[in-house]
C-alpha cells in the first residue's frame, strides 16, 4: 500500500450480527483495563459498563454502530474547546480537554458519540465544584493502544465486524473491476 492518507474505521455487518453484545463488552473492558483495573471477571468491575460502540436493533435486525473517523469530521469541526483533533489520520477526543458541551454528539450523523462518566482507579470522578460525575465525549478510538487492533473485531464470534483500510480495499476492488472489464469487452 502507498503512504496512508485516510483514517481506518470499523464497520459492522448486519447480516452476520446476532446481537450478542460481545463487542460492547470487549470494548468496555479494553478501555477500562488499565485506568479502572477491569479484568476478566465480573467482580473486577467497579464502574458503569459503557462501551464506545452501540449494538443497535432496527426493523430488519441488528448491528453495532461506531465512529467512521470522517475525513471532514463534523464533531471535530464543531468542537469549540479544540478537544477533538486528527492524529495520524484518526479522529481522537482528548478526554481531559472535553467539557461535555454535547455539540459533537449533535453534529455526528451516526450517533457514534455519547457522554460517558469519567472514572479513574475504579471510581467515578466528580466535577470540580459539584458532586455530579464528570463526563466526557467518548467514541471509538480503534483501540489505538492495543497492538492486536480493535477489541470488538477480535471478540465477535461471527466475524460481523471488520477493520477497514479504505485505500487498500479500494485498490483491490479496482483490480476486480478491471478484471470484469476484461470479460465484458466489446462483443
Amino acid at each position: 500500500m502507498m503512504k496512508k492518507e485516510l483514517g481506518s474505521f470499523v464497520i459492522g455487518d448486519g447480516r452476520r450480527c446476532t446481537g450478542c453484545k460481545a463487542c460492547e463488552l470487549a470494548c468496555f473492558m479494553v478501555h477500562n483495563q488499565k485506568s479502572n483495573h477491569v479484568g476478566m471477571t465480573v467482580g473486577t468491575v467497579g464502574v458503569p459498563v459503557v462501551p464506545r460502540l452501540y449494538l443497535t436493533r432496527f426493523e430488519q435486525g441488528c448491528m453495532p454502530i461506531q465512529c467512521k473517523h470522517c475525513e471532514d469530521a463534523p464533531c471535530l469541526n464543531v468542537c469549540s474547546k479544540g478537544a477533538i483533533s486528527r492524529i495520524e489520520h484518526q479522529v481522537v477526543v482528548d478526554e481531559q480537554l472535553c467539557i461535555g458541551c454535547k455539540d459533537c454528539m449533535q453534529a455526528c450523523p451516526f450517533g457514534a458519540i455519547t457522554l460517558l462518566p469519567y472514572a479513574k482507579d475504579g471510581c467515578l470522578v466528580p466535577q470540580s465544584g459539584s458532586s455530579e460525575t464528570k463526563v466526557f465525549a467518548a467514541k471509538c478510538d480503534l483501540c489505538k493502544d492495543i497492538p492486536q487492533g480493535p477489541a470488538c473485531v477480535n471478540a465477535c464470534p461471527h466475524q460481523a465486524l471488520r477493520l477497514v483500510d479504505p485505500e487498500a480495499e479500494r485498490e483491490e476492488k479496482n483490480i476486480k473491476a478491471a478484471n470484469a472489464l476484461f470479460y465484458m469487452k466489446n462483443w
Partner: peptide, 21 residues
C-alpha cells in the same frame, strides 16, 4: 459530504476515493 467513507466502503468497484479540498 463529511468524508465518512461509508460510500467508499459500499462501492464494489473502488470507484470512490476521498480527496483533499
Amino acid at each position: 459530504c463529511i468524508g465518512c467513507k461509508a460510500c467508499m466502503d459500499a462501492c464494489p468497484f473502488g470507484a470512490i476515493d476521498m480527496v483533499t479540498v
